[in-house]
C-alpha cells in the first residue's frame, strides 16, 4: 500500500512554472488538487520534492489547501530527496510514490529507487483508483492499469541489476519493436501521444485524431506506428513518424514522437535507423527532420544527433525550428534485429 506520495511542483501540482511567473504565480492544477484531497481523505500523506526555493512549498500549501508532511526544495537529485523524505517519515520505499511531469526525473528516480512507484501526472490522476492507493472499490480496469506499472517496476529492477550493455539487456528481455503503416484505428492513440509527448516530440504541435486520419490516407505521406513489447509486458502503440515522400530525393519527417514508456529501450533509435534505411532504399539522398529547439525536448535532439543528423549552425528559424539532416550515402545507423517491419509501401 502507498502511504506517501512525493510530488514535483512545476507543471505537476502547479499548472505552470513557479519561478517563471513571479508576477502572476501559476494556479494549482485542478485535477491534481482533487487527487491530493481524495488521497488525503484516505489517510495518504503528501510531500514535495522540487527544484525551487522553499517559498514555493509554502505557496503550494496555500493554493492547494493541502498539508504536506515533508518538503525538499533544492538543486540536488530527486532520488536523494525521495530517499530523505522516506527516511524522515519513517516509511519504506515500497510505500512511496513519486509524481513528476519530467520523464528524465522519473527515470532517474526509478533507476536509483526501483521500489518506489513512479508516475506521470496524467497517471497519478488515474492512480487514485488503483488497489495500492486503497480506494473503496477496485475495478478490473484499475487493477489492469496498476499491473502495467508493476511490469515497469519489475523491468526497472531487472535493468538495475543487469551488468551488461543496454543492447544486451534489451535482447535478454525479449524486446520486440514493430514498425508498420498506421491505420485509421490508430488515430485516437496518435492524437493522445501528440498531446502527451513533449520531451520526445520533434514538432511540439498537437494534432487531432481527425488530422491523423487525414494524414494516414494522404497520398505522398507515410505515417508509421511503432509498437513495443517485451517479456515483462506489452506497451502497445508507443510512437510514430509522419514522413513526406519527396520526388526530389529528400524524405522530410515533420513529426517524430515517442512515449516515455519507450525511453531507454532503443525504440526511438530503431525508428530513426529505419527511416534512414527506408529513405535510402527508396532512392532518397537526404533525410530531414525539422525539430523545435526547446529546453524540454533535448532528449529528441540527442536521438537525432545519435542518428548522425545535424542542423546548420544557428539554424533555428523564427518558428524555433531547426532542420536536422543527414546524407543517406555511406554507413547508416543500425536497426537492431529485434525490430520487425511490417510491409511498408
Amino acid at each position: 500500500m502507498i502511504k506517501c506520495v512525493v510530488w514535483d511542483i512545476d507543471n505537476t501540482v502547479l499548472s505552470g512554472v513557479y519561478l517563471e511567473s513571479p508576477d502572476r504565480l501559476p494556479d494549482a492544477d485542478p485535477v491534481i488538487a482533487s487527487v491530493l484531497r481524495e488521497l488525503a481523505s484516505r489517510g495518504v500523506l503528501h510531500a514535495l520534492a522540487s527544484r525551487n526555493p522553499p517559498e514555493a512549498a509554502d505557496y503550494v500549501r496555500q493554493v492547494t489547501g493541502t498539508s504536506f508532511a515533508a518538503a525538499r526544495c533544492g538543486w540536488g537529485s530527486k532520488a536523494d530527496a525521495v530517499a530523505a523524505i522516506t527516511a524522515e517519515l519513517d516509511l519504506t520505499l515500497d510505500a512511496v510514490a513519486f509524481v513528476d511531469d519530467d520523464m528524465i526525473e522519473r527515470a532517474e528516480v526509478a533507476a536509483a529507487l526501483p521500489r518506489v512507484l513512479v508516475l506521470s501526472p496524467e497517471d497519478a490522476a488515474d492512480a487514485a483508483s488503483w488497489p495500492q492507493f486503497g480506494p473503496a472499490v477496485v475495478t478490473d480496469e484499475a487493477r489492469r492499469r496498476a499491473e502495467m506499472y508493476e511490469q515497469r517496476r519489475r523491468r526497472q529492477a531487472a535493468s538495475s541489476k543487469f551488468a551488461g550493455t543496454r543492447e544486451e539487456f534489451l535482447r535478454q528481455v525479449g524486446t520486440r519493436v514493430t514498425i508498420a503503416p498506421a491505420v485509421a484505428g490508430d488515430a485516437a492513440r496518435l492524437h493522445e501521444l501528440s498531446v502527451r509527448t513533449h520531451q520526445l516530440n520533434s514538432s511540439g504541435v498537437p494534432l487531432g485524431a481527425a488530422e491523423f486520419g487525414v494524414l494516414i490516407r494522404a497520398p505522398g505521406r507515410l505515417v508509421v506506428a511503432v509498437r513495443l513489447a517485451d517479456d515483462f509486458g506489452d506497451d502497445g502503440l508507443v510512437g510514430a513518424a509522419v514522413t513526406e515522400l519527396d520526388d526530389a530525393g529528400t524524405w522530410s519527417v515533420p513529426l517524430v514522437m515517442m512515449s516515455c514508456r519507450a525511453l531507454g529501450r532503443g525504440v526511438l533509435d530503431s525508428l530513426l535507423g529505419w527511416l534512414c534505411r527506408s529513405a535510402a532504399r527508396a532512392g532518397a539522398r537526404e533525410l530531414q527532420v525539422p525539430c523545435l529547439v526547446t529546453e524540454r525536448n533535448v532528449p529528441m535532439r540527442l536521438a537525432l544527433a545519435a542518428a548522425g543528423m545535424r542542423a546548420a549552425a544557428g539554424a533555428a528559424g523564427a518558428d524555433g525550428r531547426a532542420i536536422f539532416a543527414r546524407s543517406l550515402s555511406g554507413e547508416l545507423p543500425p536497426v537492431p534485429d529485434w525490430v520487425t517491419v511490417e510491409t511498408v509501401p
Binding site: 528524465i104 527515470a107 532517474e108 550493455t165 543496454r166 543492447e167 520531451q199 520526445l200 525511453l263 531507454g264 532503443g266 526511438l268 533509435d269 533535448v298 532528449p299 529528441m300 540527442l302 536521438a303 545519435a306
Partner: peptide, 11 residues
Amino acid sequence: GLDSLAGTMLL
C-alpha cells in the same frame, strides 16, 4: 551507445 535517456541525464 549513449542514448537519449543516458545522454540527457549526463547533460
